[in-house]
Structures are given as structure tokens and as C-alpha cells.
Design a protein around this nucleic acid. Structure first.
Lengths: 115, 115
DNA sequence: GCAACCTTCACACAGCCGTGATAAGGTTGG
DNA sequence: CCAACCTTATCACGGCTGTGTGAAGGTTGC
């Protein structure tokens, strides 16, 4: 599948498909002449990517970071060390301090939006 | 420990310490009068943070994303779904295609740096 | 009571991110 | 052989990030 057809099927512009490749997020194979060839795997990745961005307001750099985390054990270790010092709410109990913090952060965002 | 002393001990400027709080990365307690109070936990977090940034060239937004991943199960699930469609090198074997890709990405960065 | 701290708020700025547009040129299929 | 595609490269732009600086005012310890 060429870049044009992939664009029509996924909603990503050709420009963005090239950008996603450049960032290492969705890297298609190449034909002999150098044309990008997208397959089913890439289609799924592209749709999942669009879905994540739409639902969670996540930047591409952050998805790249998720990739790095699984590729670079040293980085993963360092981040986990840092996270270990962070106050993490236990999964099954409410953590009042953190919830309150998130709420205030949200208020700040709303405030700047309103201004 | 006040913000000034924390600044002297960690190398983060007071401005940045306030910024880190605003971003939710290192959130100190407050005294009755509203002064930020940093403790040993915060010192460790700050040092770990500086270390990660220096060694891996990671943005603050990316660390925030790591926090989100552990706080938002729905997001974590969506990202894992996307990662599942990604070609991931097995931990104990070299993955030629991916290595080659990373090398070329590196070359591109060097090229732009040199220009 | 005052120097040395702290607070929030705002202005400023370089640099990067995501995205479109466009140019100059190669490939492909009927 | 040519229309419709593809390639790379470049310019452009608004918006956000990370950081400094300064103003206006509250707190604290000696």
C-alpha cells in the first residue's frame, strides 16, 4: 500500500506519515525504487496512534519515550528509581493528596484557557 | 528545608523548583505561611531528575508521561496495545532492522548538528 | 524593626513540535 | 509517453517548553 492510499485510509496526511517515520514511530518498508510500503501492521499502528492522541492528549515525543523505555534498560532503570521516590497512590485506595493536586492543576489549566 | 537552601544543594534554580512543582514532578509540602518545605524525599527526587536529564536527554514532559502511565490505567492499556503492534527487539538477541534504523536516525541528527 | 528570606504574577525569549505548502525531480502503468 | 503518483528538501508558522528577570508584597529570626 502506497503512502497516498495509507493517507486516505487512516486520515493521516502524507506529510505526517513521513514525519512519523522520521520520529521512528511508524516505519514502513521500502520498495526497490524507494517508495514507502505500508502493510496491515502499519495500518494498525497508525490507527492506534491516532486513537491514543485523540483520547489522551499525548504528544508524539511521549510515545517515542514509551518506545525508548522498552528499548533502553538503563533509561528504564533510572526512571524507575526516580518513580520509586515519588508518592504513588496505591491502586485500590484513594490518595487524597494526589487527587487534590491533580484537581488544582486542572483548575490552573482552565484558568489559562479562560483568559 | 526552604527553597533557597534546596536550590543551593541540588543545583536547580528556585525558578525551576517552582516550575517542577507546577508540572507535578516534585511537589513539596507547605509551611503554615505558604513556604515550600523540601525534605529528604524531595532532595532525592530532584537529584534523580537531574541525573536522568543529564544522562538521557529526556524532556520533563516525558517524565510527566511516565507518571501518567502509572496513574492512568486506561492510558497504559492503550499504549501497550500500540506497542504490541510495534516491532520490538527481543531482549537477548540483536535485531538488525531496528539497530540499522536507530543508526540512521543518529546520522540524521549529526548531520543537522553539523550544518 | 529590619535584612534576608519567601510568595505569586507577569514579561520575555530561544528553541523545538506538529503541520502545511511548494519546488525539483524520479517511477509506474495503461 | 504522459498523468498520476512517489521521493527529498526547504520555508513558514502558531504554540508550547524551559528558563531568567523583575515587581509587589508577606514572613522570620535576631
Amino acid at each position: 500500500m502506497t503512502i497516498g492510499e495509507t493517507s486516505r485510509r487512516t486520515g493521516w496526511s502524507p506529510r505526517m506519515l513521513r514525519y512519523l517515520e522520521q520520529e521512528g514511530l511508524v516505519v514502513p518498508a521500502r520498495s526497490d525504487a524507494g517508495y514507502r510500503r505500508y502493510g496491515i501492521r502499519e495500518l494498525n499502528q497508525l490507527n492506534a496512534l491516532a486513537d491514543i492522541r485523540a483520547r489522551f492528549d499525548v504528544e508524539l515525543a511521549e510515545l517515542e519515550f514509551a518506545l525508548r523505555l522498552r528499548r533502553e534498560p538503563a533509561l528504564r532503570g533510572a526512571v524507575e528509581t526516580w518513580l520509586a521516590g515519588t508518592t504513588v497512590p496505591a491502586a485500590d485506595q484513594t490518595s487524597p493528596a494526589w487527587v487534590e493536586w491533580e484537581q488544582r492543576k486542572h483548575e490552573r489549566l482552565l484558568a489559562t484557557d479562560a483568559a
